[in-house]
Amino acid sequence: SNREKAKQAFKELLRDKAVPSNASWEQAMKMVVTDPRYSALPKLSEKKQAFNAYKAQRE
């Protein structure tokens, strides 16, 4: 689905920018907000969900 693709793109973005798994949401956003993939997930709640999944995978 498109939403799954968007989630993957967002997680790839976090990986590409080397966002550490112990980063806070605010720290992570400063690192990725300028990338076009930041807008892949329109809802903030979805971004946070993908971010938390990313962190869980990295730990």
Rank of each mutant, 00 (worst) to 15 (best):
12 E>P: 00
17 K>E: 05
59 E>Y: 08
40 A>Q: 05
6 A>R: 06
32 V>M: 10
16 D>Y: 00
21 S>Y: 13
55 K>L: 10
4 E>G: 06
57 Q>E: 15
18 A>T: 08
54 Y>W: 15
24 S>E: 07
58 R>L: 15
55 K>F: 01
47 K>H: 05
33 V>D: 13
5 K>P: 05
15 R>E: 14
1 S>G: 14
23 A>F: 06
35 D>S: 01
8 Q>V: 10
41 L>C: 05
16 D>V: 01
48 K>R: 09
6 A>L: 03
23 A>D: 03
13 L>E: 06
12 E>Y: 01
34 T>N: 15
21 S>E: 12
31 M>Q: 08
58 R>S: 13
26 E>R: 01
52 N>M: 14
31 M>A: 08
58 R>D: 08
38 Y>W: 12
42 P>F: 01
13 L>W: 00
18 A>R: 13
47 K>Q: 09
33 V>H: 15
10 F>Y: 08
24 S>K: 09
56 A>V: 12
21 S>K: 15
20 P>M: 03
26 E>C: 03
50 A>P: 06
44 L>V: 11
50 A>C: 13
39 S>Y: 08
4 E>D: 13
11 K>R: 13
43 K>Y: 01
57 Q>K: 08
27 Q>S: 05
20 P>H: 01
38 Y>I: 03
5 K>F: 08
28 A>V: 08
10 F>L: 05
32 V>Y: 02
28 A>S: 05
25 W>V: 08
26 E>S: 09
8 Q>H: 07
48 K>I: 12
41 L>G: 08
52 N>T: 09
26 E>W: 02
38 Y>P: 05
51 F>S: 04
27 Q>M: 07
12 E>M: 01
48 K>A: 04
8 Q>T: 12
9 A>S: 11
25 W>N: 14
3 R>W: 08
34 T>C: 10
26 E>L: 06
45 S>G: 08
49 Q>N: 04
16 D>E: 15
49 Q>W: 02
1 S>R: 12
42 P>I: 08
50 A>F: 04
43 K>P: 06
38 Y>F: 13
13 L>M: 15
19 V>D: 07
24 S>A: 09
40 A>T: 07
16 D>P: 00
7 K>H: 14
11 K>C: 14
12 E>W: 00
38 Y>V: 06
55 K>N: 07
53 A>F: 00
22 N>L: 04
23 A>K: 04
7 K>C: 08
35 D>Q: 00
7 K>Q: 14
38 Y>L: 03
20 P>W: 00
39 S>R: 14
59 E>N: 04
32 V>L: 10
29 M>E: 11
13 L>A: 07
6 A>P: 06
17 K>N: 12
41 L>H: 01
29 M>W: 04
12 E>L: 02
19 V>L: 02
46 E>P: 01
22 N>G: 09
31 M>H: 09
12 E>V: 01
43 K>W: 06
46 E>S: 01
52 N>C: 11
6 A>F: 03
32 V>R: 02
55 K>R: 10
12 E>C: 02
37 R>G: 02
31 M>E: 11
28 A>Y: 00
2 N>F: 00
25 W>Q: 06
53 A>L: 07
22 N>R: 03
22 N>S: 13
42 P>C: 03
33 V>Q: 14
42 P>V: 05
58 R>V: 14
47 K>P: 06
16 D>W: 02
1 S>C: 14
36 P>Y: 01
37 R>P: 05
30 K>T: 11
23 A>I: 11
47 K>I: 00
2 N>A: 05
16 D>Q: 05
39 S>D: 12
11 K>N: 11
28 A>P: 04
40 A>L: 13
57 Q>V: 08
45 S>M: 05
49 Q>T: 06
5 K>M: 13
46 E>L: 01
59 E>T: 11
17 K>A: 11
7 K>M: 15
28 A>G: 04
22 N>I: 00
43 K>C: 14
28 A>W: 01
29 M>R: 12
58 R>M: 15
11 K>L: 15
35 D>Y: 00
29 M>Q: 14
24 S>V: 01
15 R>A: 13
53 A>S: 12
5 K>V: 12
40 A>C: 11
10 F>R: 07
19 V>R: 02
12 E>H: 07
47 K>F: 07
50 A>L: 12
11 K>Q: 15
58 R>N: 09
42 P>W: 02
58 R>Q: 15
26 E>Q: 05
21 S>W: 12
27 Q>R: 07
41 L>V: 10
19 V>S: 03
30 K>Y: 00
58 R>A: 15
38 Y>N: 04
10 F>P: 10
12 E>D: 10
36 P>H: 05
42 P>H: 04
5 K>G: 10
14 L>H: 03
30 K>F: 01
11 K>S: 13
20 P>C: 02
33 V>C: 15
18 A>Q: 15
42 P>E: 14
19 V>M: 07
19 V>E: 06
12 E>T: 07
34 T>Q: 13
14 L>M: 02
47 K>R: 11
40 A>D: 01
12 E>K: 04
50 A>V: 15
16 D>C: 00
15 R>T: 11
35 D>N: 05
3 R>Q: 12
49 Q>C: 09
3 R>M: 14
46 E>C: 03
9 A>E: 13
20 P>V: 02
5 K>S: 12
33 V>F: 09
11 K>Y: 10
38 Y>M: 02
53 A>I: 06
44 L>A: 11
48 K>W: 03
4 E>H: 12
49 Q>I: 07
24 S>R: 01
56 A>G: 09
34 T>R: 08
15 R>Q: 12
3 R>A: 05
38 Y>A: 07
51 F>G: 08
58 R>H: 13
40 A>K: 08
23 A>S: 07
25 W>I: 08
23 A>V: 09
56 A>T: 11
29 M>P: 11
52 N>G: 08
45 S>H: 13
2 N>P: 03
15 R>M: 15
28 A>H: 02
30 K>M: 08
28 A>T: 07
8 Q>K: 11
57 Q>L: 03
34 T>K: 10
17 K>C: 06
57 Q>R: 08
24 S>Y: 01
14 L>C: 04
43 K>L: 09
23 A>P: 03
3 R>T: 12
47 K>C: 02
19 V>I: 04
18 A>V: 06
15 R>P: 02
4 E>N: 12
